[in-house]
Design a protein around this nucleic acid. Structure first.
Lengths: 340, 340
DNA sequence: ATGAAAGCGCTAACAG
DNA sequence: CTGTTAGCGCTTTCAT
């Protein structure tokens, strides 16, 4: 391996000069710069980032700690948003999947400080995630998609209440009356906020939330399927359902198909999370689209600003989801018209 | 920040002893070990991986260089396979998305050597990917999903020929005669191998490949859609189509819907790549399922074995995809029976 | 079994 | 403008 010493020797200069060339300091003779650059190329020398990090105590690496890249398009999009900004600014990423497991999360947080990363973008696995190792070591943290009770870090959120509200208000406007809700764990921000949006829409319409129409599931496919089955097995069936994430939506759709019911005549459905295949379903699926990529981008930007020296109070950026109206929630009167 | 020196001082031992405790060397007094461990806990000390890497020239980090995590479930699954093995063995991952851009790929390869990573798992963007920076620096490389002409590295592949063959043989067995193929760029391994499998199945059935039924697209949604439109616009339409990846399948399905044709009566379809939502479509989608997670796992294992000292010739592991038969390719005679 | 000391490759005072 | 030198935090001979 060729080091900075080899380059210095070959170029007949000191290592300091080589270092200056590497970091393009202004006060260095252009001719020296040229020869050094030449030698570097000839020797195929590449400065060790490890040594540089040790010396400068600045690591051009971030840790991105999320629950699972596989879980639908959401996190994958977030990752790309982060990565694109990071790459543009000369940073690279440790990808850490916690699977919502707080122990794994804690161990990745440990890793982040052990690796002396420059910053962390984290989707906390729960309300008790301990950021103190990071905070104590002065590692800037940005919370993405979920925040924490203690306002110790910048966060970037999707307006879950608004997204859910839009979805349910849309169903109400379409003439649906018995609107069920399959929500995720209420202990999570996403779970509770989306449920709040559901309740708000119902109440603003002068109705009250009917507990028999609400099912708290686990954000997963099987949970969604079971919840939907239960709802359909009741004596008084819902005429519409709002499902708060894409995995549970897959399960719910399966349950509806299994029950041989037709969407939206028997039951309308709106999903939180829009997928590339939403338009391939028949009928096409009405869904709340989350700005996942942008969420990654914004998170990375907040981190960059901290790295750039900003040290004000914790900031909170909220991004708005948008309702994609499609066939699975056609207004009742239009359905009637079709029949007629 | 507390360092090994602080620990040594507080424990009344030398840094060498602390280091030995950290790396659990056998020849160290159990009582000293205890006090050192105690002090470490009290001080909240965490050894710097950066310093360790610099000193030992062994980095417990890998670079995982793929085209794009967002591109469907495939790479996300690969990533998780790699990550699970890596995490289990104490390694972490740089996630690098190249977007099939050889310049970006090259820059990530540079990063890998600059960061002195312990190993690289790479999906080459093309046949000209230059591994020499890695090879020169003695960084072990495993090629995942695609290989390179020069057999310089271990590789883990999916048997694309077999997968495509299974798909097309299944259509032939179902009585389909004019089977079209929408394939990706033939310059890529996946593109060419899947096309080979298509051709082999056709020829083994005693037929010949009809060039008018073959479209070379770009592995993307729009490309798949256009290709399908062209195929449908011909005077003699195909009665089935084999599409060689999931994005083009989405496009093709869209085109079929737009043409108001019915699957599989007007045209049957089989996709390479199975998705979580394949069973939600009506009819459900017949697809070749790739062992993506396992591909990640195997790649990581090969890397681990190199890291463990294995230095034999380049190995090649081939994983078999499996055909998931569903409704989009129901045999013709059964269709006839339904009608009758 | 433990410690002293050298050094991994780099940067940043400090001199000159 | 350039060189000398002292570390960054850790591991690892080499002595003891």
């Amino acid at each position: 391996m060729t080091t900075i010493v080899d380059v210095a020797r070959a170029a007949g200069v000191s290592t300091a000069t080589v270092s200056r060339v590497l970091n393009n300091h202004p006060q260095v003779d252009p001719r020296l710069t040229a020869t050094v650059l030449q030698v570097i190329k000839e020797l195929g020398y590449r400065p060790s980032r490890v040594a540089r990090t040790l010396r400068t105590r600045r690591n051009r690496v971030w840790a991105l700690i999320i629950s699972d890249v596989r879980t639908g398009p959401f996190f994958a999009d977030v990752v790309r948003g982060v990565e694109d900004v990071a790459y543009g600014a000369g940073y690279s990423l440790f990808l850490c999947n916690t699977d919502e497991d707080s122990a794994k999360e804690a161990s990745y947080i440990e890793l982040a400080v052990a690796e002396n990363v420059g910053g962390v973008i984290l989707t906390p696995s729960g309300p008790h995630t301990d950021l103190s190792p990071l905070v104590n070591f002065g590692v800037p943290v940005v919370l993405a998609d979920r925040t924490l009770p203690t306002q110790v870090a910048d966060s970037v959120l999707v307006d879950n209440v608004s997204g859910a509200y839009q979805a349910v208000a849309h169903l109400l406007a379409g003439g649906y009356k018995r609107i069920a809700c399959i929500t995720g764990m209420l202990g999570t921000t996403t779970g509770s906020r989306r449920y709040v949006g559901y309740g708000r829409a119902i109440e603003e319409a002068g109705l009250t939330v009917d507990a028999s129409l609400v099912r708290v599931a686990d954000f997963r496919e099987l949970g969604g399927q079971r919840a939907m089955q239960e709802l359909l097995d009741q004596r008084e069936r819902p005429d519409a359902v709002f499902v708060t994430n894409h995995l549970m939506t897959i399960g719910a759709l399966q349950a509806i198909v299994d029950a041989k019911l037709t969407i939206p005549t028997d039951i309308a459905i709106v999903s939180f999370d829009d997928m590339s295949w939403s338009t391939l379903l028949r009928p096409t699926l009405t869904a709340v689209a989350q700005p996942a990529y942008d969420l990654g981008v914004e998170s990375a930007r907040l981190l960059l600003s901290r790295l750039g020296g900003y040290s004000g109070a914790a900031r909170m950026v909220t991004l708005s989801p948008s309702l994609q109206v499609r066939g699975s929630s056609v207004p009742k009167r239009r359905l009637a018209a079709r029949r007629g």
